[in-house]
Amino acid sequence: MGFKHKDLLGLEQLQPDEIRHILDTAVPMKDIICREIKKVPTLRGRTVINLFYEASTRTRTSFELAGKYMGADTINIATATSSVVKGESLLDTARTLEAMGADVVVIRHQASGAPHFLARNLNAAVINAGDGTHEHPTQALLDMLTIREKKGRLEGLVVTILGDILHSRVARSNIWGLTKMGAEVRVVGPATLVPGIFRQMGVRVIHRVEEALAGADVINVLRIQQERQAKGLLPSLREYARMYALTPERLVLAAPDVLVLHPGPMNRGIEIHPAVADGVASAITEQVTNGVAVRMALLYLLMGGGQSHGTTD
Protein backbone atom coordinates (compact mmCIF):
# COMPACT_ATOMS: atom_id res chain seq x y z
CA MET A 1 0.00 0.00 0.00
CA GLY A 2 1.06 3.59 -0.48
CA PHE A 3 1.18 6.47 1.96
CA LYS A 4 -1.28 9.06 0.81
CA HIS A 5 -0.34 11.98 3.00
CA LYS A 6 1.80 14.93 2.02
CA ASP A 7 2.79 15.54 5.62
CA LEU A 8 2.90 13.79 8.95
CA LEU A 9 1.36 16.22 11.42
CA GLY A 10 -0.06 13.85 13.98
CA LEU A 11 -1.33 10.35 14.56
CA GLU A 12 -4.90 11.51 15.07
CA GLN A 13 -5.47 11.69 11.33
CA LEU A 14 -3.91 8.32 10.49
CA GLN A 15 -5.78 5.08 9.91
CA PRO A 16 -4.69 1.93 11.77
CA ASP A 17 -3.50 0.43 8.45
CA GLU A 18 -1.29 3.44 7.83
CA ILE A 19 0.27 3.21 11.26
CA ARG A 20 0.91 -0.49 10.73
CA HIS A 21 2.47 0.28 7.35
CA ILE A 22 4.89 2.79 8.90
CA LEU A 23 5.89 0.32 11.60
CA ASP A 24 6.31 -2.50 9.06
CA THR A 25 8.49 -0.28 6.90
CA ALA A 26 10.62 0.64 9.92
CA VAL A 27 11.58 -3.00 10.49
CA PRO A 28 13.88 -3.40 7.44
CA MET A 29 15.21 0.12 8.10
CA LYS A 30 16.44 -1.07 11.44
CA ASP A 31 18.64 -3.64 9.67
CA ILE A 32 20.34 -0.86 7.75
CA ILE A 33 21.21 0.94 10.99
CA CYS A 34 22.74 -2.23 12.35
CA ARG A 35 25.03 -3.00 9.41
CA GLU A 36 28.48 -1.68 8.70
CA ILE A 37 27.57 0.56 5.76
CA LYS A 38 24.66 2.48 7.20
CA LYS A 39 23.53 4.13 4.02
CA VAL A 40 21.19 3.50 1.16
CA PRO A 41 20.87 5.73 -1.92
CA THR A 42 17.09 5.97 -1.80
CA LEU A 43 16.82 9.71 -1.09
CA ARG A 44 19.99 10.75 -2.89
CA GLY A 45 19.69 14.35 -4.02
CA ARG A 46 16.85 15.08 -1.63
CA THR A 47 17.14 17.73 1.07
CA VAL A 48 15.78 17.37 4.56
CA ILE A 49 15.76 20.49 6.73
CA ASN A 50 15.46 20.17 10.49
CA LEU A 51 13.88 23.39 11.69
CA PHE A 52 14.06 23.37 15.46
CA TYR A 53 12.61 26.23 17.47
CA GLU A 54 13.10 24.29 20.70
CA ALA A 55 16.26 22.76 22.00
CA SER A 56 16.35 19.03 21.35
CA THR A 57 19.39 16.88 20.91
CA ARG A 58 17.72 13.53 20.81
CA THR A 59 15.01 14.13 18.24
CA ARG A 60 17.08 16.40 16.03
CA THR A 61 19.99 13.97 15.88
CA SER A 62 17.63 11.13 15.20
CA PHE A 63 16.08 12.91 12.22
CA GLU A 64 19.48 13.97 10.99
CA LEU A 65 20.80 10.41 11.04
CA ALA A 66 17.63 9.07 9.47
CA GLY A 67 18.02 11.49 6.60
CA LYS A 68 21.71 10.71 6.14
CA TYR A 69 21.20 6.94 6.28
CA MET A 70 18.58 7.29 3.55
CA GLY A 71 21.05 9.17 1.38
CA ALA A 72 19.45 12.62 1.73
CA ASP A 73 21.29 15.82 2.51
CA THR A 74 20.25 17.05 5.94
CA ILE A 75 20.62 20.55 7.28
CA ASN A 76 19.90 21.68 10.82
CA ILE A 77 18.51 25.06 11.65
CA ALA A 78 18.25 25.47 15.37
CA THR A 79 16.93 28.62 16.88
CA ALA A 80 16.07 29.00 20.51
CA THR A 81 14.03 32.09 19.91
CA SER A 82 10.51 32.19 18.63
CA SER A 83 9.77 33.81 15.30
CA VAL A 84 8.12 36.69 17.07
CA VAL A 85 11.23 37.50 19.04
CA LYS A 86 13.54 36.89 16.12
CA GLY A 87 11.63 39.21 13.88
CA GLU A 88 11.23 36.88 10.92
CA SER A 89 7.90 35.19 10.69
CA LEU A 90 7.64 31.43 10.47
CA LEU A 91 5.98 31.90 7.11
CA ASP A 92 8.93 33.83 5.71
CA THR A 93 11.40 31.33 7.13
CA ALA A 94 9.48 28.47 5.58
CA ARG A 95 9.25 30.11 2.19
CA THR A 96 12.96 30.75 2.25
CA LEU A 97 13.66 27.11 2.99
CA GLU A 98 11.45 25.98 0.18
CA ALA A 99 13.11 28.37 -2.21
CA MET A 100 16.38 26.75 -1.22
CA GLY A 101 14.99 23.43 -2.37
CA ALA A 102 13.88 21.68 0.78
CA ASP A 103 11.98 18.48 0.04
CA VAL A 104 11.15 17.74 3.65
CA VAL A 105 10.90 20.17 6.53
CA VAL A 106 11.04 18.61 9.98
CA ILE A 107 9.74 21.11 12.51
CA ARG A 108 9.90 21.29 16.29
CA HIS A 109 8.05 24.31 17.66
CA GLN A 110 6.74 25.49 21.01
CA ALA A 111 3.41 26.57 19.50
CA SER A 112 0.81 23.88 18.92
CA GLY A 113 -0.27 23.83 15.28
CA ALA A 114 2.88 25.45 13.90
CA PRO A 115 3.54 22.39 11.65
CA HIS A 116 -0.03 22.63 10.29
CA PHE A 117 0.55 26.26 9.44
CA LEU A 118 3.76 25.31 7.65
CA ALA A 119 2.13 22.40 5.82
CA ARG A 120 -0.59 24.69 4.47
CA ASN A 121 2.00 27.08 3.10
CA LEU A 122 4.66 24.73 1.71
CA ASN A 123 4.85 22.24 -1.12
CA ALA A 124 7.55 20.38 0.77
CA ALA A 125 6.54 17.52 3.05
CA VAL A 126 6.29 18.61 6.67
CA ILE A 127 7.02 16.29 9.56
CA ASN A 128 5.94 17.29 13.04
CA ALA A 129 8.83 16.67 15.43
CA GLY A 130 6.81 17.96 18.38
CA ASP A 131 4.53 21.00 18.50
CA GLY A 132 3.69 22.66 21.78
CA THR A 133 1.44 20.40 23.80
CA HIS A 134 -0.22 18.95 20.72
CA GLU A 135 1.50 15.93 19.16
CA HIS A 136 4.86 14.27 18.79
CA PRO A 137 3.93 11.55 16.32
CA THR A 138 7.38 10.09 15.65
CA GLN A 139 7.98 9.56 19.37
CA ALA A 140 4.71 7.63 19.64
CA LEU A 141 5.58 5.60 16.55
CA LEU A 142 8.94 4.62 18.00
CA ASP A 143 7.26 3.76 21.30
CA MET A 144 4.81 1.57 19.44
CA LEU A 145 7.56 -0.07 17.41
CA THR A 146 9.42 -0.85 20.63
CA ILE A 147 6.30 -2.25 22.28
CA ARG A 148 5.48 -4.36 19.22
CA GLU A 149 9.02 -5.73 19.15
CA LYS A 150 8.98 -6.67 22.81
CA LYS A 151 5.39 -7.84 23.05
CA GLY A 152 4.77 -9.08 19.52
CA ARG A 153 1.56 -7.07 19.27
CA LEU A 154 -0.21 -3.88 20.27
CA GLU A 155 -3.78 -5.07 20.21
CA GLY A 156 -5.22 -5.96 23.59
CA LEU A 157 -2.26 -4.64 25.59
CA VAL A 158 -2.84 -2.51 28.66
CA VAL A 159 -0.66 0.58 28.38
CA THR A 160 -0.45 3.02 31.30
CA ILE A 161 0.88 6.51 30.65
CA LEU A 162 2.05 8.08 33.88
CA GLY A 163 2.70 11.75 34.54
CA ASP A 164 1.82 15.20 33.23
CA ILE A 165 -0.62 14.15 30.53
CA LEU A 166 -2.13 17.61 30.12
CA HIS A 167 1.07 19.23 28.89
CA SER A 168 2.42 16.21 27.02
CA ARG A 169 2.49 15.93 23.25
CA VAL A 170 4.05 12.49 23.65
CA ALA A 171 1.00 11.39 25.64
CA ARG A 172 -1.46 12.69 23.07
CA SER A 173 0.27 10.97 20.15
CA ASN A 174 0.57 7.75 22.12
CA ILE A 175 -3.11 7.89 23.05
CA TRP A 176 -4.21 8.30 19.44
CA GLY A 177 -1.79 5.70 18.10
CA LEU A 178 -2.31 3.04 20.74
CA THR A 179 -6.10 3.30 20.85
CA LYS A 180 -6.23 3.04 17.05
CA MET A 181 -4.11 -0.10 17.24
CA GLY A 182 -6.47 -1.68 19.76
CA ALA A 183 -4.56 -1.21 23.01
CA GLU A 184 -6.29 -0.24 26.26
CA VAL A 185 -4.79 3.04 27.39
CA ARG A 186 -4.87 4.37 30.95
CA VAL A 187 -3.60 7.79 31.90
CA VAL A 188 -2.65 8.48 35.48
CA GLY A 189 -1.47 11.47 37.47
CA PRO A 190 -2.86 14.20 39.72
CA ALA A 191 -6.19 15.73 38.66
CA THR A 192 -4.51 19.04 37.84
CA LEU A 193 -2.33 17.34 35.23
CA VAL A 194 -4.75 14.61 34.15
CA PRO A 195 -8.18 16.21 33.74
CA GLY A 196 -11.19 13.94 33.32
CA ILE A 197 -11.92 15.30 29.86
CA PHE A 198 -9.20 12.96 28.52
CA ARG A 199 -11.91 10.29 28.67
CA GLN A 200 -13.23 11.79 25.46
CA MET A 201 -10.04 10.65 23.74
CA GLY A 202 -10.96 7.06 24.55
CA VAL A 203 -8.74 6.41 27.55
CA ARG A 204 -9.32 5.61 31.23
CA VAL A 205 -8.48 8.51 33.53
CA ILE A 206 -7.12 7.40 36.90
CA HIS A 207 -5.67 9.39 39.79
CA ARG A 208 -4.54 6.52 42.00
CA VAL A 209 -1.29 5.12 40.66
CA GLU A 210 -1.77 1.63 42.12
CA GLU A 211 -5.03 1.24 40.26
CA ALA A 212 -3.50 2.42 37.01
CA LEU A 213 -0.52 0.08 37.23
CA ALA A 214 -2.49 -3.06 38.10
CA GLY A 215 -1.91 -5.61 35.36
CA ALA A 216 -0.30 -3.10 32.97
CA ASP A 217 1.69 -4.63 30.10
CA VAL A 218 3.48 -1.39 29.34
CA ILE A 219 4.17 1.69 31.46
CA ASN A 220 5.19 4.86 29.67
CA VAL A 221 6.62 7.27 32.25
CA LEU A 222 6.63 10.95 31.29
CA ARG A 223 9.08 13.55 32.44
CA ILE A 224 7.66 15.90 35.07
CA GLN A 225 8.76 19.48 34.71
CA GLN A 226 9.92 21.75 37.46
CA GLU A 227 7.77 24.63 36.26
CA ARG A 228 4.52 22.78 37.03
CA GLN A 229 5.12 23.51 40.67
CA ALA A 230 5.71 27.20 40.00
CA LYS A 231 2.51 27.36 37.94
CA GLY A 232 0.55 26.05 40.90
CA LEU A 233 -0.37 22.75 39.27
CA LEU A 234 1.52 20.77 41.90
CA PRO A 235 2.11 21.53 45.57
CA SER A 236 5.63 20.13 45.27
CA LEU A 237 7.71 17.70 43.26
CA ARG A 238 8.38 15.88 46.52
CA GLU A 239 4.68 15.20 46.99
CA TYR A 240 4.35 14.21 43.33
CA ALA A 241 7.21 11.75 43.72
CA ARG A 242 5.67 10.28 46.84
CA MET A 243 2.31 9.79 45.13
CA TYR A 244 3.25 8.94 41.57
CA ALA A 245 6.90 7.95 41.17
CA LEU A 246 7.36 4.56 39.53
CA THR A 247 9.08 2.61 42.30
CA PRO A 248 10.07 -1.06 42.45
CA GLU A 249 7.23 -1.61 44.95
CA ARG A 250 4.68 -0.18 42.54
CA LEU A 251 6.18 -1.96 39.55
CA VAL A 252 5.26 -5.37 40.98
CA LEU A 253 1.59 -4.45 40.57
CA ALA A 254 2.03 -4.51 36.80
CA ALA A 255 2.13 -7.62 34.61
CA PRO A 256 5.17 -9.81 35.35
CA ASP A 257 6.80 -9.08 31.98
CA VAL A 258 5.96 -5.37 32.07
CA LEU A 259 7.83 -3.11 29.66
CA VAL A 260 8.78 0.33 31.01
CA LEU A 261 9.36 3.17 28.55
CA HIS A 262 10.47 6.74 29.07
CA PRO A 263 10.78 9.31 26.28
CA GLY A 264 13.76 10.79 28.12
CA PRO A 265 15.52 12.63 29.55
CA MET A 266 14.71 11.04 32.91
CA ASN A 267 14.45 12.78 36.29
CA ARG A 268 15.72 9.95 38.42
CA GLY A 269 14.14 10.04 41.84
CA ILE A 270 11.21 12.18 40.76
CA GLU A 271 8.97 10.45 38.25
CA ILE A 272 11.02 7.27 38.24
CA HIS A 273 12.94 5.50 41.01
CA PRO A 274 16.63 5.03 40.13
CA ALA A 275 16.34 1.25 40.43
CA VAL A 276 13.50 1.19 37.91
CA ALA A 277 15.24 3.73 35.69
CA ASP A 278 18.29 1.48 35.36
CA GLY A 279 16.08 -1.41 34.40
CA VAL A 280 14.48 0.85 31.82
CA ALA A 281 17.79 1.97 30.38
CA SER A 282 18.05 -1.04 28.09
CA ALA A 283 14.67 -0.34 26.54
CA ILE A 284 15.65 3.29 26.14
CA THR A 285 18.63 2.32 24.02
CA GLU A 286 16.23 0.29 21.93
CA GLN A 287 13.89 3.27 21.68
CA VAL A 288 16.71 5.41 20.31
CA THR A 289 17.50 2.93 17.51
CA ASN A 290 13.83 2.50 16.76
CA GLY A 291 13.48 6.26 16.60
CA VAL A 292 15.95 6.45 13.73
CA ALA A 293 14.27 3.50 11.98
CA VAL A 294 10.80 5.02 12.26
CA ARG A 295 12.03 8.34 10.93
CA MET A 296 13.79 6.62 8.01
CA ALA A 297 10.53 4.85 7.23
CA LEU A 298 8.64 8.14 7.27
CA LEU A 299 11.12 9.89 5.03
CA TYR A 300 10.91 6.97 2.62
CA LEU A 301 7.12 6.93 2.63
CA LEU A 302 6.67 10.69 2.36
CA MET A 303 9.19 10.95 -0.47
CA GLY A 304 7.54 8.20 -2.50
CA GLY A 305 5.26 10.55 -4.43
CA GLY A 306 6.11 11.15 -8.07
CA GLN A 307 7.71 14.18 -9.62
CA SER A 308 10.45 13.05 -11.99
CA HIS A 309 10.60 10.38 -14.64
CA GLY A 310 12.48 7.18 -14.87
CA THR A 311 12.27 3.79 -16.32
CA THR A 312 11.53 0.65 -14.51
CA ASP A 313 13.06 -2.71 -15.05
Partner: peptide, 9 residues
Protein backbone atom coordinates in the same frame (compact mmCIF):
# COMPACT_ATOMS: atom_id res chain seq x y z
CA UNK B 1 9.95 8.61 -6.85
CA UNK B 2 8.27 7.96 -10.20
CA UNK B 3 6.08 5.18 -8.93
CA UNK B 4 2.54 6.15 -8.05
CA UNK B 5 2.56 3.56 -5.35
CA UNK B 6 5.63 2.48 -3.50
CA UNK B 7 6.57 -1.13 -3.43
CA UNK B 8 6.29 -2.53 0.05
CA UNK B 9 9.66 -2.68 1.66
Amino acid sequence: TTLAQQPVL
